[in-house]
Design a protein around this nucleic acid. Structure first.
Lengths: 338, 338
DNA sequence: ATGAAAGCGCTAACAG
DNA sequence: CTGTTAGCGCTTTCAT
């Protein structure tokens, strides 16, 4: 049975331990001056009483929550999960905890989420991307805490940035293909601009193709972002039907690229013999599939780890100016491309 | 520039709006008696001042945080992400927010995490699995909030349960193979018992094989849980080398099953012609791969959604007794098995 | 529909 | 190393 009586407070622990509440408070902190003997005794009393420290009171009084708010587009995405993992591990040593929310790739939802998160008084906020609603920008600017935009290199950052240019990364991929003499290149991506990183990748594709004087119109819309494996497969089917002379296809992610690969397998279309396939993100699947997938590794975990390091430096005073940490994505040429 | 002056409080809003702080407080709630005119005026003043409601103060005074704590083994797992998604969506309408932490498949880490989460005074806690350290059990029992164990059917539940029997699910898979005349069946899983669900699946495999009077010793240890695609591929390589007459292999997850499939493709081993492969979890990859993967769908999103519904019912008083909601996993026979 | 007083459980600030 | 006092910003409770 759950005991319906009120849970013990610090005052209860103090009374039983025969000290003042302040000493109990100190015993629960690190680096505070309490004799080891009293600390041990206090912690024992606390454990015996079933006392659990109450952060809500601590948060209010100390005006510190140890929260770092983080927004990601989707919780079900290995790339963003890696970024959160890097963040979480980098912050946990400092006793900072992540308050996570997801936007479903929607900047209006992001605005709602940011406001909800700021009410919890996080000490820093990490957001994915550099595009936000006007009100979201205002909320972030006025929050009085470090703001870190990631997975992008916004032209007018709100504060700090840890990211890379999605457009440039895809440009590098196009350059790679063109250098190999591959010129009839298609792009499979989302059919809406909700996913701003996907949109940037498509823009990078178009710009790069035009820079080479090539036809940039082989754009296959695969559905509403994020594009699933299934949608990648369907898009590949349409591409093979409508533009059969295509030599290579760049997909907005490894997931859609894998779907595209399977469609080729189903149709007996040789990859990379008849068509090359490339993805984005260096998801695990691309390293294991047959053939392995040519892709771009944006080092998602590093993005999180660098953001965490930045927050720690900001709190310690080691960093004061707005930081702009650029991650260099790596082109991984593998079995799915010539 | 960030303004270093103190952010506005309700008292500031009240002063400017010409009302008492209490009226401002009411204006920020729903279903409270404030005239629409005053509410509108107050919200406008608040927005103009850049006031952001302070949950930390509200939490302390009202003894309500609107947090539901959730622990999952890994943030980078589509199954658990789906459960969190179901939970999150089911709770958000009621204004409840998820406080998420991951245990890295380690019940000692889980204990630390549970204590940290309880300090934030969540109003309910959802944990993955039914195995916990003694201290974690005590913490949960004494927390005075609803405890929901998921992804398992523990014999001695701490409170509520939304789950299924991992052992029984795999048993059904074995029965399916045996009914088709397939008897030389192997199991690929983790080499440690950290992942209790993986361990239960292996136990279910062994029990089912023995029940059929079959050899249950074809167990391939693929590494420390969770098993990656790569580890699944390596394990399949060892299986093909050491026990080449194996007719079917059941993998602890679709990810390892896909890895195993790719190893067969690399070696030119026909699937399912020479060997059948089955996974667990109904990950997206199993529906798209060539061939598609035979698997078990445990309805991860439903687990989260049912847990959310339970919490809502518990809060509203519609449910009072300990609930035991059993999810019925579904066997999906697909292209990778005969 | 609105207001006044009190206090949630901790800790900053100061004292010793 | 330990204690005292006051108060963080809200909301409960009780009025009107």
């Amino acid at each position: 049975m759950t005991t319906p009586r009120k849970p013990p407070t610090m005052a209860d622990v103090a009374r039983v331990a025969g000290v003042s509440p302040m000493t109990v408070s100190r015993a629960f902190k690190q680096d505070t001056s309490v004799s080891e003997a009293t600390r041990g005794a206090i912690l024992k009393v606390a454990e015996d009483l079933g006392y659990v420290f109450d952060s809500t009171a601590s948060n209010l009084r100390s005006q510190r929550t140890n929260f770092v708010a983080v927004t990601i587009p989707s919780i079900n995405n290995a790339n963003f999960a890696d970024t959160v993992g890097g963040l979480s591990d980098g912050l946990k040593e400092r006793g900072l905890q992540i308050l996570l929310g997801y936007t479903n790739y929607d900047i209006v939802e992001e605005e709602r989420l940011i406001e909800q998160l700021l009410r919890r008084r996080p000490e820093a906020i990490v957001v994915t991307g550099g595009r936000h609603t006007e009100r979201a920008r205002r909320l972030l600017e006025n929050a009085g805490i470090p703001v870190i935009e990631t997975w992008d290199l916004p032209e007018a950052p709100l504060g700090h940035v840890v990211g890379f240019s999605n457009a440039d990364a895809v440009r590098g991929m196009v350059d790679h293909f063109v250098a190999r003499g591959v010129t009839r290149i298609a792009f499979i991506g989302g059919d809406a601009d909700r996913d701003t990183r996907g949109t940037d990748r498509r823009s990078g594709f178009i710009a790069a193709m035009r820079a080479h004087g090539l036809d940039a119109s082989r754009l296959i819309a695969a559905g509403a972002p994020p594009i699933s494996m299934r949608e990648g497969a369907d898009a590949m089917g349409r591409l093979l039907d409508s533009l059969p002379d295509t030599q290579a296809v760049i997909c907005v992610s490894d997931l859609s690229a894998f779907g595209a690969l399977t469609e080729c397998q189903r149709r007996g279309v040789d990859v990379p013999g008849r068509i090359s396939i490339a993805g984005f993100g260096d998801y695990e699947i691309g390293a294991v599939s047959v053939p392995t997938l040519t892709t771009i590794n944006p080092f998602p975990r590093d993005i999180g780890a660098r953001a965490a390091g930045l927050i720690v430096d900001l709190f310690s005073g080691a960093q004061t100016d707005p930081a702009r940490i650029e991650i260099e994505p790596e082109l991984l040429v593998r079995g799915s491309s010539v």
